[in-house]
């Protein structure tokens, strides 16, 4: 199959993965998911709201025959919490996949890679398909891969920061050495950021805030769909090298008024 996006043996049509958080309304979320063309969405695992039973269930608004659900361990600060949350996420019953997050710092939401590695090992052993959110550090990405992660997900910049790909060289290096898919997760702010990630060779991009908090989430979702496609096409098209000086596009001979 030409240019397949495959994670743990499962093929996805779209290289864009999106979240379900921070949308102004659940209807906007649903329309944005549609516009994005994504076929995998992430969800958080949280206590049921017992005091407000009128709250609609998220699953009522996601067509699970069209969207693959990826539970995450958002806001877990220890390996134990993340493992516990992952197990509960699996127990809800939709998949044994988990987007593994172990947060190391409240302000930056950067991962605690030591705990992340520990949690990855435990969950891989328990049969989970683990997609860890991690730093743009080739060393930790290699360790996570060796620990059995089904993909590695280096951040582009802090979650929700919109700063784009802060260290493109590292992303390129990570992709160069990886034997599992590389999905840039976190920090994308606008369409060009997603395109840059794909041009660096990333297999996919995961984002939430860039779409959910855009002034027009549905338009941004559509932009991201195109951005990821454009980036992948450009990556395969073989770009020209960067040069310091000009390299004329038109022939130099036959210019009127030129001396011999």
């Amino acid at each position: 199959m030409a240019d397949e996006f495959r994670i743990a043996g499962r093929v996805f049509r779209s290289r864009l993965i999106i979240g379900t958080g921070k949308y102004p309304t659940i209807q906007t979320m649903r329309a944005a998911h549609e516009a994005s063309g994504a076929d995998m969405v992430t969800v958080a695992v949280r206590r049921v709201n017992l005091t407000d039973r009128t709250k609609e269930s998220l699953l009522d608004y996601i067509d699970t025959s069209k969207f693959f659900i990826l539970p995450n361990t958002a806001a877990c600060y220890t390996a134990d919490d993340a493992v516990r949350t992952a197990r509960l996420g699996r127990e809800v019953g939709l998949s044994n996949w988990v987007k593994l997050e172990v947060i190391g710092d409240e302000k930056t939401l950067f991962p605690d890679n030591e705990a992340l590695l520990e949690a990855t090992r435990v969950l891989v052993k328990e049969g989970f398909v683990v997609l860890p959110y991690t730093s743009d550090d080739p060393v930790i990405c290699r360790k996570l891969e060796d620990a059995g992660a089904a993909a590695v997900m280096p951040l582009g910049a802090p979650i929700g920061s919109g700063l784009g790909i802060q260290n493109p060289n590292n992303i390129r290096i990570i992709k160069e050495q990886a034997r599992v898919p590389v999905i840039v997760d976190a920090g994308v702010g606008t369409a060009s950021d997603a395109t840059v990630a794909m041009e660096l060779g990333a297999d996919g991009v995961l984002m939430n805030t860039a779409i959910a908090l855009a002034s027009d989430p549905i338009a941004m979702a559509r932009a991201m769909k195109l951005a990821v496609e454009a980036g992948r096409l450009a990556f395969h098209a073989g770009r020209i090298p960067r040069k310091s000086y000009a390299s004329a596009s038109s022939p130099l001979e036959g210019v009127i008024g030129a001396r011999a």
Partner: peptide, 22 residues
């Protein structure tokens, strides 16, 4: 008792964060 809710990395406001995680 937990369920799936909308989420990305930090979707829960700081004030309620401490109560909604298991």
């Amino acid at each position: 008792i937990v369920n799936f809710v909308g989420g990305g990395g930090d979707s829960v406001a700081a004030a309620s964060k401490r109560r909604w995680r298991i």
